[in-house]
Design a binder for these strands. Structure first.
Length: 492
RNA sequence: CGGGGAGUAGCGCAGGCCGGUAGCGCAUCUGGUUUGGGACCAGGGGGUCGCAGGUUCGAAUCCUGUCUCCCCGACCA
């Protein structure tokens, strides 16, 4: 029974699927490409959401909500935007069903065709900017700093649980500013919020950077991103922040009067992270025994497993101690649970909580009580130690901090190890195949070269790191002059 | 959209070639013994075999059609 997961080595993709399904995070729904997020997975999302929401509010943003449906014509108002999203939009064409006259359930009522078809939002720029037009007249209405938590739909050809699903949950920030500089500042600020969140809460180091033009968001002037490295050496874009220039302001005619009563288009940004972060989290830290969750966002941080025996009196003592301990841990703000379910035995619980990635497990039996100790096991290193019950709460609190740090350090060490600098095409190809990870190399800056490299190696430019060192070199593929290195990787 | 796989009990699967009482493991329910790494014994319950046609005395099994999901590729957060 112990080998219920496919190992990473055996089949990384299958391992990931097993983890999501058996770890109780999500499952496939009856609708193709859509998933059901189960309570444990949703608890993870809620924790992420709560932290991010506070960070957004602390940086001056307010939440609002815009419709799920967008008039089809809105999408086409910004040329590159429609081009980017048109291929993956779900479209609502009718508003009513009726009983099939032939008796085969219900059919779409042909009489109920919509005058203008609606698309299910793949992102909300268009509906939001058509609204902002009404909200913004003067420089005094700026900056406008709005975020929304929502679901969006992108009709993907190929989906993977959390990493790419047809419907997903996310937040999208949409801001309007009086000046270009201020909008860029906002773009970078929110990228920084994402980076801080992912590094400090998810214990996952990221690289902040700018996308190459061909990887840009449809309608943006610049797309900033944070990129993380997964255990199989593939990169994953964990968040994006876009400087939209005046593209949407012009498309939707959003203008304001500045202090000199001059009429100008506003400057815009948008930024988002999604439930994809859960996929990143899973792939970054977990192992062949199951999930490994960083304490700061783990739904459950500590579980106490009782080890009973026949002695009813001893059992009572264990219960009393465990309940008192849970209470004390909770007083310290620790998410703790006493699992006294008597229908499963200790060994089963050990395996189950390991599968679910609970950071700390405390086992408490009669023998421990006699010695005034508990067995404390940490999920990240799979080590156990005997800890005195006196002041154990402080020990656990410290341990959770240590685990958080350890996970980050391990992920950072892994990324450092798998970040390679190469200067020749042969080496580039060899490194990608033999030791996947980020590859820092010179690129001549043309979309043609970028596309050719992708075609030949499946590697894409993940980003041009912020504050990138400028150095002269030769493009890895063409040998043309280059002024800086960019980061390549195969990516999710 | 191409290539592969799969739909049989809640879950995982066998059975199919060769048509004849629908089976196994896990889970579940009852009772008991247990409890320091996925316990054991005994007894019980649970299935329109994806759907629709056809062949046949008889179809999970053969034939035709159809739907769905998953995996691998091209597109993408």
């Amino acid at each position: 029974m112990s080998n219920i997961l496919t190992s990473r080595k055996q089949d990384y993709a299958q391992w990931y699927n097993d983890l999501i399904l058996k770890g109780g995070l999500a499952e496939h729904s009856d609708v193709r490409g859509c998933m059901v997020i189960k309570p444990y997975g949703f608890a993870l999302w809620e924790n992420m959401r709560d932290v991010l929401d506070k960070m957004f509010k602390d940086t001056g943003h307010q939440n609002a909500y815009f419709p799920l449906f967008i008039p089809k014509s809105y999408l086409s108002k910004e040329a590159s935007h429609v081009e980017g999203f048109a291929k993956e939009c779900a479209v609502v064409t009718h508003y009513r069903l009726k009983n099939d006259p032939n008796g085969n359930g219900v059919i779409v009522d042909p009489e109920a065709k919509l005058e203008e078809e609606l698309i299910v939002r793949p992102t909300s720029e268009t509906i939001i900017w058509s609204t902002y037009k009404k909200w913004i007249q003067s420089y005094r209405d700026l900056p406008l700093l709005i975020n929304q938590w929502a679901n969006v739909v992108r009709w993907e050809m190929r989906t993977r649980l959390f990493l790419r699903t047809a419907e997903f949950l996310w937040q999208e920030g949409h801001t309007a500013h009086a000046t270009r500089e201020e909008a860029i500042e906002e773009t970078v600020k929110m990228l920084d919020v994402y980076a801080t969140f992912v590094e400090e809460y998810m214990a996952l180091p990221v690289i902040r950077g700018v996308k190459s033009p061909s990887e840009r968001f449809a309608g943006a002037e610049d797309t900033y991103c944070i990129e993380a490295l997964m255990q199989d050496g593939k990169a994953l874009q964990a968040g994006t922040s876009h400087f939209l220039g005046q593209n949407f302001a012009k498309a939707f005619d959003v203008k304001f009067a500045d202090k000199d009563n001059k009429i100008e288009h506003v400057w815009a940004t948008s930024w988002g992270v999604s439930t994809r972060l859960i996929g990143a989290l899973v792939m970054a830290h977990s192992d062949d025994e199951g999930l490994v969750l960083p304490p700061r966002i783990a739904p459950l941080q500590v579980v106490i497993v009782p080890i009973y025996n026949k002695d009813a009196e001893a059992r009572q003592k264990i219960d009393d101690k465990a309940k008192a301990l849970v209470k004390e841990l909770q007083l310290k703000g620790i998410r703790a649970k006493f699992d006294n379910d008597d229908t499963t035995r200790p060994g089963w619980k050990f395996a189950e909580y390991e599968l679910r990635g609970v950071p700390v497990r405390i086992a408490l039996g009669a023998r421990d009580l006699e010695n005034n100790v508990a067995e404390v096991a940490r999920r990240d290193e799979k080590t156990k130690s005997s800890v005195s019950l006196d002041g154990i709460e402080s020990h656990i609190a410290q341990l959770l901090t240590d685990i958080q740090t350890n996970l980050y350090n391990k992920a950072l060490a892994f990324r450092t190890e798998n970040m390679r600098t190469v200067d020749s095409w042969d080496e580039f190809v060899r490194v990608l195949d033999e030791t996947p990870g980020f590859v820092s190399a010179h690129w001549d800056g043309t979309a043609e070269t970028e596309a050719k490299i992708k075609e030949l190696t499946k590697a894409t430019i993940r980003c041009i790191p912020l504050n990138n060192v400028q150095e002269n070199g030769k493009c890895i593929l063409t040998g043309n002059p280059s002024t800086q290195r960019v980061l390549f990787a195969r990516a999710y």
